[in-house]
Nucleic acid binder design. Structure first.
Lengths: 233, 233
DNA sequence: GCCTCTTGAATAAGTCGTATGTAATGGGCT
DNA sequence: AGCCCATTACATACGACTTATTCAAGAGGC
């Protein structure tokens, strides 16, 4: 048997999760553990563990005598990073990017305001460094470098807010930014206005200007939403 | 064998999840599947399924030859409703209520603004009905009835926003409201000012007044945060 | 003599096959 | 029509085997 590099469980989970998140299995569709075991050439034990995980994500529901039924989208745990990744890999990626960006536009301004109050000296320094990195990579097709600094920047702000619920959205934001960069405008340099806003946001946080930080972050969010509207209406 | 009412799996998962979320097992603590099987008097199969689910929630990490290690809090999937429930049942419930309330204060105003634009006639009607229900139950120790209407109210707003990420926070908000009511002020009637704000919010949504809805929701959130500060400093 | 690298044994999770229990469904019997 | 029973597919359990990882002992080099 060809041993998977990271375990049979992970492999089957990813394959099934992708299928369901992509909508290949419409809600109500019934899967059979035996079938799945055959299809992936693994034992039922492995399949059962996978089903249990998918069940904990509310992607499926397992009932005796009836099988494993796919649940409607509204019931999924859409905040699970794994689920987000599966959905972003699927066909309704634009819709997904939009709702995540709206979420960002709600959360990040408040987080930035809190960060201005609570950020440590180290966090301020790291923030400034990221902003400078964004400036340095904002021209000349250095999109990957720019993306790395952008992700780090927003992660620091969320962490510095001191609220763990905000901090845990760092992964979500990272997925959104990566998705945006890799999906649409690989050929264009980032918007210079956005870069400036990040630099000014770093300053505001460093100076403890909470309202300024919140306002600047709102502007960044508006820009991100506008970008989506322009590129994927 | 004592047959569990809802399955062995659920029972063991709940017990272990509670223990970990409550902090009884400090991060880095190693659990052995054999031990757990013995302790809960179930087979290793059931334990493995439970471990897999806890692993998908990033509460633990399972490595060969070393065992199941509890991960640090910062890595948990704190948006998983199950995890939230476990943590709210534990000892750091106040801290948890606070971070969730801050999250609400960021998300709900934006959601209310969107709801004012997108709410259907049915949703507006249901919202008004809930607001009236809150008024009717705001005096005379009808806290359970008030809570039910309060939860329904906020759920409708989140759903009406049309954003699925917001909509899925309905359960979180429900947990917070329930936790607040059951934890602290069972003896006091709700703040009359809050009741009024909900009535006015229902009006604003019905009239499509987005900025008004956002502002009113912010006031509600401020009140909720203030309440936490007063009662659990 | 001390440090490093290799090697091998011990260990605990990973995987599998099978057996049995259990609940829900659907058809057949009265 | 209504009740009963056979079927079905998941739920649970057990035991054997596999594999990766760790730890330590020993060989070799400095």
């Amino acid at each position: 048997m060809t041993t998977q590099s990271q375990g049979l469980h992970t492999h089957v989970l990813d394959a099934l999760g992708l299928e369901i998140a992509a909508g290949d299995c419409p809600p109500g569709r019934v899967l059979r553990t035996d079938e799945l075991a055959q299809r992936f050439d693994v034992s039922r034990t492995v399949v059962r563990e996978v089903i249990r995980v998918l069940e904990s994500m509310h992607l499926v529901e397992s009932r005796r005598r009836v099988g494993v039924t796919v649940r409607p989208t509204e019931e999924w745990n859409v905040y699970d990073p794994q689920v987000i990744r599966w959905r972003l890999a699927g066909s309704d990626r634009p819709r997904q990017l939009r709702s995540l960006t709206v979420l960002r536009s709600a959360v990040e301004p408040v987080a930035a305001g809190l960060a201005a109050r609570h950020a440590t000296a180290e966090q301020c320094a790291a923030l400034t460094e990221c902003a400078l990195g964004m400036v340095a990579t904002s021209r000349g097709q250095q999109l990957e470098g720019y993306l790395r600094h952008d992700i780090a920047f927003h992660r620091i702000v969320l962490n510095a807010s001191g609220n763990e619920m905000f901090a845990r959205l760092g992964d979500v934001v990272a997925e959104v930014l990566a998705g945006r960069t890799h999906h649409q405008v690989m050929f264009e340099d980032p918007d210079p206005a956005a870069v400036t806003l990040h630099v000014r946001l770093a300053e505001a946080v460093r100076e403890g200007d909470a309202v300024g930080a919140e306002r600047l972050t709102k502007e960044i969010a508006v820009g991100a939403l506008h970008e989506l509207d322009v590129l994927a209406p």
